[in-house]
Design a protein around this nucleic acid. Sequence first.
DNA 1: AATATAAACTAATGACATTAGTTTTGCAAG
DNA 2: CTTGCAAAACTAATGTCATTAGTTTATATT
Lengths: 196, 196
Amino acid sequence: MSPRAGLDTHTLVLAAAELADEQGIAEVTLAGLAAKLGVRSPSLYNHVNGLKELRTLLAIHGLEQLQTAMEASIVGISGDAAVHAMSRAYVEFARQHPGLYETTLRAPEEGNTSLEEAGGQILSLIINVLAGYELGEEGGLHAVRGLRSILHGFASLKNQGGFGMPLDLEVSLTRLIKTFIAGIRCMRSGEESGKE
Amino acid sequence: MSPRAGLDTHTLVLAAAELADEQGIAEVTLAGLAAKLGVRSPSLYNHVNGLKELRTLLAIHGLEQLQTAMEASIVGISGDAAVHAMSRAYVEFARQHPGLYETTLRAPEEGNTSLEEAGGQILSLIINVLAGYELGEEGGLHAVRGLRSILHGFASLKNQGGFGMPLDLEVSLTRLIKTFIAGIRCMRSGEESGKE
DNA sequence: AATATAAACTAATGACATTAGTTTTGCAAG
DNA sequence: CTTGCAAAACTAATGTCATTAGTTTATATT
């Protein structure tokens, strides 16, 4: 069906992901990728529409992998335990795939359906795991933003070496999630008319 | 003291910061900067040791500006109000200076004293503002990590357009900080022997 | 006014991305 | 088995950058 059957788009994306994780996101170049695949860089244009599209595909791939990891982490669990498990999975994914995770957050294209969908699925996952706290329509969405901020901020700072202090990182994350959950509970019990 | 007195390092950094904020971090190139300054790119090497050093200087400048904004936001305030004010200032700085803020988090050089110092000062600021909660040595440091994660995560996602939902962003941040503070209080009152 | 020096310049090299146009090869149809 | 086509890979070429080397020029100090 295809001559010299060597490469296809998926192979490119996988190789690019390796490059991103091992060498850093700045080393994801068509030249470097071609070298890794034993091919000249113009050949890559048969499978991908330039560097920009490669980055978008990488972002989608990363989001899908992240989603898979998050889903797997919460099978059979619910409540606080699920929030903790999902949080650990998120941060652990970012640690194992620093480059891929980083591409995930750079939105290179507006209006890319696949990309938005992949992001939306992760959003749904977080919404579900927080659904048990009965925060209401609006409150739930604010809480989702909160948890996303926590997870991304922690993972990002950790990956960039932003936490200099000699203190166990796992403990820090566990405490942060505990604090978040406790805060949700306390705020709710302290509410009167739902205002503020 | 200097011939053709046009440029100096500080001018370069300021112009690069403008470029970063207006055009995005990817457009911070020596070629672009030189064009903006009406000069040929090799001339920049008289003031800066290449693109990498420019990025480092940009990061330091950004951290200093951020620190100034955070400090200004809490003069005369303390307690919860200070945490809220500082958080707003942080996120607002990131909004006003998206490119500069982004450079801040990319640690391009290991062991750069000025860079580490600038980061350390922000850390101290956060430590101080959380000091009133009497979290103890270790607990305080975990809390600092937590707040940093929240602030960076929120600012970063907001800047990247990561929050798609049509929901007031200021409310989201205020709630998140409230939740964090409430969580800290609740966790503390629920403690027995200080374990876990 | 003369000079030393720092700043700016031109020229050149090498890494990329990207485009155009050519060659090759695997598969399918005769 | 051969022949042809389409996709994949190639070479060649262009343009943008960063960076280095070496030259020119302006100005501050003498």
